[in-house]
Computed example of a mutant assay.
Amino acid sequence: MAVFVLSNAATPLYGLWQRDIGFSKGTLTVVFASYVVGMTASLLVSGVASDRLGRKPVLVPALVLAALASAIFATAASVTALIVARLLTGIAVGAVVSAGMAAVTDVAGPGRKRLAALLASCAMVLGAGLGPLLAGVLSETLPAPTVTVFLVEIALLALALPVVLRMPVHRPATTGRGAWIRVPKVPRGDGGRLLLGIAVFAPGLASTSFVLALGPSLLSGLLGTADRGAAGAMAFVMFLASAGVQFAVTRLRIRTILLAGSTSIVAGMSVLTAAVHTSSVALLVVAALLAGAGQGMGQFGGLSLLNSGIPASRLAEANAALNVGGYLPAGALAVSAGYLSDAIGLTDGATTFAATLAGLAITGGLVVLTRGRRVPGA
């Protein structure tokens, strides 16, 4: 959770950096998406390294890199510094979504895999929501608005370090085969589990990424408020919905959870379109809640499918594969939405993005409908 606080802590602060440094919405989404580049590079190695070396040798460097990224954010005076900080953040998060989530499953034991998926997923989304909330509130109430939250984050990471060091997990008995740096994959015969998860998780993640990247611009450009606390609170309730809905659906079949996630994303994009055309804060918040719920169900469903069928010796790599499939399209869509908004305006750009994402979510739902019955455990 501590690492995921950093993943979105910069969100309410981009307006301040835009004012002080000077850059466009397109550049903003490049800064945002550099996180995805770092994360993808990390996922090419962190899952395999975790399965072969153990969880701790991957998680401890991740905490150190996250602290370094926090220090760079706190002293950033250029777009380059922001990109480097986001890149390092992505590397750290890539290690956590593969090795960290697998570690939760290891500690939970074989009899509590569904609970492990729930807790790991909720830790991720709660951290992702707490980051912008802390940044928004602290930047509005305390001096040094682009510094304070990152000092708090360094303290959180320092608290997380002894937790990682004391985790009751052990180094694997075997080191596995194949290249250390490779596109992460699942064992032969488990591709259906991965496909179902990505089909809903990817558009869900893209919808929340859009709210994070351009939500503050929507609030200030269309809805007449530049309050960073409001932007942070909107992101927080989005991820709070993501966590809450996972507890609500934990007893449902995984196929049902994924279909509900797809439906929530489509509804969220419809409401987002209405929000930007009516300049309604209330509708924008509802769209964020629906997007968060869709991502939460896609993420929980995907992790549950992997946990139920992937052996522990390949689980971190499987988690990495799920996140590569989710974050790559999310990053590409966020950058496209930013530059499109610069070219044709925020209203038309957001509308086009929402329609595209709704189409992807519908496609994902159809994949779950047609293939879900053939996947064991779904």
Results as ranks from 00 to 15, higher is better:
residue 3 V to C: 06
residue 3 V to F: 05
residue 10 A to M: 15
residue 15 G to Q: 08
residue 18 Q to W: 08
residue 24 S to W: 04
residue 25 K to A: 15
residue 25 K to T: 12
residue 31 V to P: 03
residue 39 M to W: 02
residue 41 A to T: 14
residue 46 S to P: 08
residue 48 V to D: 11
residue 51 D to R: 03
residue 54 G to H: 10
residue 55 R to N: 03
residue 57 P to D: 02
residue 59 L to C: 06
residue 62 A to F: 07
residue 66 A to Q: 01
residue 68 L to A: 15
residue 70 S to V: 00
residue 70 S to K: 02
residue 71 A to M: 06
residue 90 G to D: 00
residue 90 G to N: 02
residue 92 A to I: 01
residue 92 A to P: 03
residue 93 V to T: 13
residue 94 G to Y: 01
residue 96 V to N: 02
residue 98 S to F: 00
residue 101 M to K: 07
residue 112 R to E: 11
residue 112 R to N: 13
residue 119 L to M: 14
residue 122 C to D: 15
residue 123 A to L: 13
residue 124 M to S: 15
residue 126 L to F: 12
residue 131 G to W: 01
residue 136 G to Y: 00
residue 137 V to E: 07
residue 139 S to M: 00
residue 139 S to F: 00
residue 141 T to Y: 11
residue 145 P to S: 09
residue 159 L to D: 10
residue 169 V to Q: 02
residue 172 P to W: 06
residue 173 A to L: 14
residue 178 G to E: 11
residue 184 P to C: 08
residue 185 K to N: 14
residue 189 G to S: 08
residue 193 R to E: 09
residue 193 R to I: 08
residue 195 L to Y: 12
residue 195 L to K: 11
residue 197 G to W: 03
residue 201 F to I: 10
residue 201 F to K: 01
residue 202 A to F: 04
residue 207 S to R: 07
residue 208 T to I: 13
residue 209 S to T: 13
residue 212 L to V: 13
residue 217 S to Y: 10
residue 217 S to D: 11
residue 217 S to C: 09
residue 217 S to Q: 09
residue 227 D to Q: 11
residue 230 A to G: 07
residue 230 A to Y: 10
residue 233 A to G: 11
residue 234 M to R: 05
residue 238 M to R: 08
residue 251 R to H: 13
residue 255 R to W: 11
residue 265 I to K: 05
residue 267 A to R: 08
residue 270 S to K: 10
residue 271 V to W: 02
residue 277 H to Q: 14
residue 282 A to S: 14
residue 287 A to P: 04
residue 293 A to K: 06
residue 296 G to K: 00
residue 297 M to G: 04
residue 306 L to M: 11
residue 307 N to I: 10
residue 312 A to K: 12
residue 313 S to W: 11
residue 316 A to G: 05
residue 318 A to L: 10
residue 320 A to Q: 03
residue 322 L to I: 07
residue 325 G to R: 05
residue 328 L to A: 13
residue 329 P to T: 03
residue 333 L to D: 02
residue 338 G to S: 06
residue 339 Y to G: 10
residue 339 Y to Q: 08
residue 346 L to P: 09
residue 350 A to N: 05
residue 350 A to D: 06
residue 351 T to S: 15
residue 352 T to R: 13
residue 353 F to K: 05
residue 354 A to Y: 02
residue 355 A to M: 14
residue 364 G to C: 06
residue 372 G to A: 09
residue 376 P to I: 09
